[in-house]
Simulated assay, not measured.
Amino acid sequence: MIHNKSAFINYFFITVIIFVLIGVFLPTIFHMFATPQNTFYSLADGYTFDYYQYMSWIKQGMDGHLLLTSPYTEIPYPRVLIHPFFPILGMIAKLFSVSPFIAYAFSRITATVIFIFVFYILTSKSLNLPSARFISLFLFLTSTGFWTISYDKNIYSLVEPISWNQSFNVIGKFSLPPHHLLALSFSILTYLLLIKKRKRILDPSLSILLGILTGFLNPSTL
């Protein structure tokens, strides 16, 4: 019986991944097919000001730079080590001869799957009962922020907790930039290593390494 429940949880987990990927990337696919002829769709997602900064960083990585500068200012901006995820992604993109836009899109897909998988590992290690793991995955999938009801000019409307932040709705929380999702994933893995009852010799070193990688991916996560 337990085996059947565990198998059900695994199938549900796969369904969650498929549902999330469809929900997150369906608008992108729609706009790809809806793009008029002789125009270019850049696959822009989220906060577009940040998006095009990411594209410039990926392009600099494709040009062989690990240290980054900003092309969007006339003020001299020396190259510094900031968000190495993007220039490294650019170097990988160059190996496969893909554009920064395609590279970023694939990194979003990869980071989303990794994030969900790491959360599944967290539930598997933290919760013994299959029913508890199912509930946690269900809440993980459906949870959102605390919306409010606005009444203005005789019209009721739902208002997101932070209107510009897409991470506070059911699907939007999975469409965070890839370095955010990966940093969250690494922080969860670090937590799992720290709470292990039977620690291996390398576990403390792995925890430190994951913590450092989390900081490099997204310092604000720390």
Rank of each mutant, 00 (worst) to 15 (best):
M1K: 09
I2L: 15
H3N: 14
H3F: 14
K5A: 11
A7P: 03
A7G: 08
F8V: 12
I9S: 01
N10I: 08
Y11E: 08
F12Y: 11
F12Q: 00
F12V: 01
F13S: 04
F13Y: 13
V16C: 13
I17M: 06
I17R: 00
I18H: 09
F25E: 04
T28R: 02
F30D: 12
F33I: 14
F33T: 12
F33R: 11
A34H: 11
T35A: 09
P36D: 01
Q37W: 09
T39L: 04
Y41E: 13
Y41G: 07
L43D: 00
A44C: 06
D45M: 07
G46H: 03
G46C: 04
Y47L: 09
T48G: 03
Y51M: 11
Y52R: 08
M55A: 04
S56W: 02
S56N: 14
G61R: 00
G61I: 02
M62W: 05
D63T: 06
G64H: 04
L66W: 02
L67D: 01
T73P: 08
P84K: 04
F85P: 00
F85E: 01
F86W: 08
P87S: 06
P87V: 03
L89S: 14
A93K: 04
L95R: 13
S97G: 07
S97T: 14
A103R: 03
A103G: 09
A105L: 11
F106C: 06
I109K: 01
V113I: 10
I116R: 07
F119K: 02
I121L: 15
L122C: 10
L122N: 08
S126H: 05
S126N: 08
S126V: 10
I135V: 14
I135R: 09
L141T: 01
T144E: 14
T144P: 05
T148Q: 15
I149A: 15
S150W: 04
D152F: 12
N154S: 15
L158R: 11
N165A: 14
N165P: 08
F168K: 01
S175K: 08
H179C: 03
H180V: 03
S185F: 01
S187D: 04
Y191S: 11
L192Q: 08
I195H: 06
I195N: 08
K199R: 12
I201P: 05
P204V: 05
L206Q: 03
I208H: 08
L209P: 03
G211T: 05
G215A: 03
F216A: 04
T221P: 01
T221S: 05
